[in-house]
């Protein structure tokens, strides 16, 4: 029977299909595991021979002489990232409010396109622009130019689209009935937005900020190019600093033994910081889903 033969053939095809898909998906899933395992494995020697305490207790960061004080680098990373987030958050939120509530429709969608284009500019191009345009301007204000401030400004520009686009989406999820209700009570825009819209979209907005923070912490090229990369605790925003990611990019080329291993530890720290943020965002996301299900 050709019909039964075709049926058997179909079954065989399906069996092959599902199992090859399973293999492909396993390889994909394995990539995440491999990254963790290998970064951990390369970081382990330094963790054992140097120990966590010396990253905070050593005299300074002189990796070639066995001095591994990571504090200034950690501080540089956190300061640039938080500074960038501090600027990008209000601007991103205002951009989102602009798109959802203030701009005429055509302007709103073209502004959104612009934000998408801004998000698409490669970090190396941002870094280049910062280096040749922004840094000389800061240098005029207060030398040397390559500084914490330059890093903060470039990072804020880079993560602004993330904050703005995600916030626009979560403001758009606020039920239209709320707005109509507020309008019926003739509440002022200020009251409607600050008391009703923003609290309703709160967890979405926080998620946007968290994801942007993760991006800022992990950013390498732009920070590497504009921050000056001096390992020091900055006294002002005009002092150069070095971030964890920039440190890896700068020293990986010639690092050996313990030094190399310490660089993998910085990679691990970055991974942990970003992982923590992603977890926070996903917990927030699932809480939000629970809440809406409750309604």
């Amino acid at each position: 029977m050709s019909s039964l033969a075709s049926l058997r053939q179909a079954k065989r095809n399906d069996w092959c299909l599902i199992n090859s898909l399973r293999i492909l998906a396993s390889v994909t899933a394995l990539v995440g595991v491999l990254i963790t395992v290998f970064v951990l494995k390369e970081a382990l020697p330094a963790l054992q021979s140097i120990g966590m305490l010396r990253f905070f207790g050593d005299d300074a960061w002189y990796p070639l002489e066995g001095q591994f004080n990571l504090v200034p680098i950690l501080l540089g990373t956190v300061l640039t990232a938080l500074g960038g987030v501090a600027i990008a958050t209000p601007l991103g939120l205002l951009s989102a409010l602009f798109c959802q509530f203030y701009a005429p429709n055509i302007l709103a969608s073209s502004y959104q396109r612009l934000l998408e284009l801004l998000a698409g500019i490669p970090s190396v191009v941002y870094g280049f622009w910062g280096l040749v345009v922004l840094v000389p301007k800061i240098n005029q204000l207060h030398p040397p130019g390559q500084s914490l401030l330059a890093g903060i400004l470039i990072l804020s520009l880079m993560i602004l689209p993330t904050v703005a686009l995600l916030s626009t989406a979560s403001l758009g999820d606020v039920p239209k009935a709320y707005l109509q209700g507020a309008d019926a009570l003739s509440l002022s825009r200020w009251t409607t937005l600050t008391r009703l819209v923003i609290p309703t979209a709160r967890s979405g907005l926080i998620t946007a900020i968290i994801l942007a923070t993760g991006r800022a912490l992990g950013e390498t090229m732009a920070v590497l190019m504009v921050c000056g990369n001096v390992v020091q605790i900055p006294n002002s925003v005009f002092d150069p600093v070095r971030s964890l990611a920039a440190n890896i990019a700068l020293e990986m080329a010639y690092a050996t033994t313990d030094h190399r291993s310490v660089l993998f530890i910085s990679g691990l720290v970055l991974l942990a910081l970003v992982g923590l943020l992603v977890m926070m965002a996903s917990v927030l996301g699932s809480e939000e889903r629970e809440k809406t299900r409750g309604i």
């Binding site: 994909t28 899933a29 394995l30 990539v31 995440g32 595991v33 491999l34 990254i35 290998f38 970064v39 494995k41 390369e42 993760g214 912490l217 992990g218 950013e219 390498t220 990611a245 890896i248 990019a249 990986m252 660089l263 993998f264 990679g267 970055l270 991974l271 970003v274 992982g275 943020l277 992603v278 996903s282």
Partner: peptide, 19 residues
Amino acid sequence: SLDFLAGVPSIVFGLFGSV
């Protein structure tokens, strides 16, 4: 695993690739 991968900074991909 994919959610994790989406959050990994590119410099860490570089570290992984080099190893």
